[in-house]
């Protein structure tokens, strides 16, 4: 006679559903800053190499107060704003065209794929030669950097639109323009946004690079300037400003995505 064992059945998938409270993530960021502050205060790391968070904040406040930070931030935001808008609109429009029209695809795709691998910053000297050292060359280089990821994503987004939806649209006699506007564009939107987010990172990179090469104002120029002067705290204020700019940028794109893609 066998012994009668009794075992409760437990959910072995429970670990996937584990939920942590929201403050854990906040705490991790605060923890890093506190740790950084402690290291700076407790050890003899000179401010030249690693300024403490509190020192950066105080200096940052002074730079806001003097207007220096705002002037530079404004110059940078103007460049990245226009560059991003122009580059992404051109990328979306041409991506829709190359994705939808066979002729545009045959003509456009080889050009896009030939130019895409060029690191755009390598074109800056050429663009300065063509367009001068002013704002136009900086906006152009950012636009170029944004354009390529956006056109490539838009193209693949168009290709990934459910063929059934195009079939349905044609069955209901939609014109070519209606198909693009009412089916292809919304259908490709999720992938287009993936491209825009990718491009946001690229645009920040190109902004700083362009400002470091040729600009009087702008956060990139400011960072380089204080680096040369070995004023590390002020340099770090610039870095912090860039990080905030990047976060704000990403946040706005996420917000816009939620507004536009509600289904």
């Amino acid at each position: 006679m066998n012994a009668m064992y009794r075992r409760a059945v437990v959910n072995r998938l429970a670990f996937i559903d584990t939920k942590l409270p929201g403050w854990v993530s906040t705490l991790s960021l605060i923890g890093l800053i506190v740790l950084w502050e402690i290291v700076c205060r407790a050890s003899s790391v000179p401010e030249l190499y690693l300024p403490s968070p509190s020192a950066i904040l105080v200096t940052g406040w002074d730079m806001i107060d003097s207007g220096e930070l705002l002037i530079n931030a404004k110059a940078s935001m103007y460049r990245i704003g226009w560059g991003f808008v122009i580059g992404s609109i051109a990328g979306i429009v041409l991506g829709l065209a190359t994705g939808f029209f066979r002729l545009a695809e045959a003509v456009g795709n080889p050009i896009v794929h030939a130019l895409y691998p060029i690191p755009k910053i390598a074109l800056l000297p050429l663009i300065i030669l063509w367009l001068g050292i002013g704002e136009l060359s900086k906006v152009t280089i950012i636009s170029l950097g944004v354009f390529f990821p956006v056109i490539i994503n838009t193209y693949s987004g168009v290709k990934n639109v459910d063929p059934l939806l195009i079939k349905a649209a044609v069955a209901f006699r939609a014109s070519r323009l209606s198909i693009i506007r009412k089916v292809i564009l919304p259908g490709a939107l999720p992938v287009i946004f993936a491209g825009l987010k990718l491009a946001a990172g690229t645009s920040l990179l190109l902004l700083v690079a362009a400002e470091m090469i040729a600009a009087k104002e702008g956060i990139g120029a400011m960072i380089l300037h204080y680096g040369d002067l070995m004023l590390t705290t002020k340099l770090m204020v610039g870095v912090l400003a860039l990080s905030l700019l990047g976060i704000a940028f990403n946040y706005s794109l996420n917000w816009l995505e939620k507004q536009l893609i509600s289904w």
Binding site: D162, L164, L165, K167, A168, A169, A171, F172, R173, A174, S175, S178, K182, V183, P186, I261, S262, W263
Partner: peptide, 25 residues
């Protein structure tokens, strides 16, 4: 008028907008 096996509604359009699709043309 066509009705499809996989239905083929536009996911971004509401019921009203989906029914109106053919009429918009």
């Amino acid at each position: 008028g066509m009705v499809f096996q996989e239905i083929g509604l536009f996911p971004w359009r509401t019921v009203v907008q989906n029914i109106a699709f053919g009429l918009e043309e």
